[in-house]
Simulated assay, not measured.
Amino acid sequence: MSTSWPGSSLSGSAPPGPATFAGRAGGKPWLTLPALTNSLLGIGGLIVLLLLWWLGTDVLASSQGFIRQFSPTTAIPELVTMLGQPDLLVHVLVSLRRVLIGLALALLIGVPVGLAVGSYSRLNTATSPAFQFLRMISPLSWMPIAVMVFGVGDQPIYFMLAFAAVWPIMLNTAEGVRRLQPSWLSLADSLAATRWETLCYVILPGVLGHVLTGLRLAVGIVWIVLVPCEMLGVSAGLGYFILDTRDRLAYSELMATVLMIGVLGFLLDAGARMLYQAVTRSRAA
């Protein structure tokens, strides 16, 4: 029985089966019929959602109903118009900057703490009740305290986003450490590897998949928390823009902004999923 380092090119892995790739051309996988079918089913689900939105706000609504203001027949053309103007782009970039900073802070805190908690059982026993208690507190409940401590501006938003994102990253990292194959650590000991070498060449590559899983979960949580955070004490961002459209009674712009938030959240999740799949495939190659 052979033992190999995680992430090493010498690690044994079965070649991709026909359900995954139809073949390789120039090192790139081909699309297969199951993958194409799944894509078409996903697009079909989005079309059904759009049809339900249209039926509920246009076809089935009364001709003078207020809900018609939120119909896709008005929101989608308005979104196309807004995309050609600089205002929406500014708010999008501000929101994305806050998300990236919040996720970066969560990674800087969550990964080291997760490595420590996963490596030492006594530390895990001592911190688990406290972490579970803090994890169950809604990040939005910290909003008044964050504003009083950090003041009005971006700092309280960074705090709340990092607080929301740190738990899935930390807990998944700790679980990844606990699931490391003991043979990898034994091999590192037999080769007289230092703790730093073991961390860099064994533990971190071994838990990378779990870290990325936690990151994907954190992206979804942060994107949900972001909008209400931006409704307090800031002058830019998608959450602020929603309040601005409401105050101006620009309901078509409001619904277009909501649609934009959904599209961006979908793309962020897709990007995190693609990153995870790319890392997984590179390790299996």
Results as ranks from 00 to 15, higher is better:
Val152Ala: 10
Leu161Gly: 04
Met160Pro: 03
Phe241Ile: 03
Ala25Ile: 12
Met260Pro: 02
Trp5Thr: 01
Ala130Asp: 04
Arg195Val: 07
Thr245Val: 09
Pro112Lys: 09
Val177Asn: 02
Thr37Ala: 14
Pro205Arg: 04
Val225Cys: 07
Val202Gly: 11
Val59Ser: 02
Ile169Phe: 02
Pro228Cys: 07
Leu108Thr: 14
Phe70Met: 02
Leu140Arg: 03
Gln64Leu: 07
Gly206Gln: 07
Ile137Leu: 14
Glu197Ser: 10
Thr73Trp: 13
Ser119Gln: 06
Met82Gln: 06
Phe266Ala: 11
Ser183Asp: 07
Arg195Glu: 10
Asn172Trp: 00
Ser235Trp: 07
Leu238Met: 02
Val263Asp: 01
Ser183His: 09
Ala104Arg: 14
Gly118His: 01
Arg248Cys: 02
Ala174Gln: 09
Ala285Glu: 10
Ser190Gly: 13
Gln85Ser: 15
Cys229Leu: 15
Met255Phe: 08
Phe70Leu: 13
Gly27Tyr: 00
Ile137Ser: 11
Leu49Glu: 08
Arg179Pro: 02
Leu49Met: 12
Pro168Phe: 03
Leu275Trp: 04
Val80Ser: 09
Ala75Asn: 02
Ala165Gln: 00
Ala25His: 14
Ala22Glu: 13
Phe163Tyr: 06
Trp142His: 05
Pro139Ile: 00
Thr32Val: 05
Val207Met: 09
Ala106Asp: 04
Gly56Trp: 02
Val152Met: 11
Gly7Met: 03
Ser121Cys: 08
Ser119Thr: 09
Asp247Trp: 13
Ser71Thr: 11
Pro182Ser: 05
Pro168Trp: 01
Leu254Val: 04
Lys28Val: 15
Ala272Met: 05
Leu238Ala: 05
Gly110Leu: 03
Ile203Trp: 01
Ser186Cys: 08
Thr127Val: 15
Cys229Glu: 07
Met143Asn: 03
Met255Val: 03
Asp58Ser: 15
Leu60Glu: 05
Val202Arg: 06
Leu93Asp: 03
Ser63Tyr: 15
Gly102Met: 03
Ala278Pro: 00
Gln64Val: 11
Leu140Asp: 06
Gly17Ile: 10
Val225Asn: 05
Ser4Leu: 00
Ile76Thr: 08
Arg216Tyr: 10
Val59Gln: 04
Ser9Asp: 12
Ser186Tyr: 05
Ala236Glu: 12
Pro129Lys: 07
Arg122Cys: 12
Gly206Lys: 00
Ala250Met: 11
Ile242Phe: 04
Leu36Ser: 10
Ser62Val: 08
Met160Cys: 04
Ala236Leu: 07
Met82Gly: 04
Pro77Gln: 11
Met160Asn: 02
Leu134Ala: 12
Ile101Leu: 09
Leu83Ala: 08
Thr3Val: 13
Trp196Ala: 12
Leu33Thr: 09
Leu123Asn: 00
Met143Ile: 10
Val207Asp: 04
Leu226Arg: 00
Thr125Leu: 15
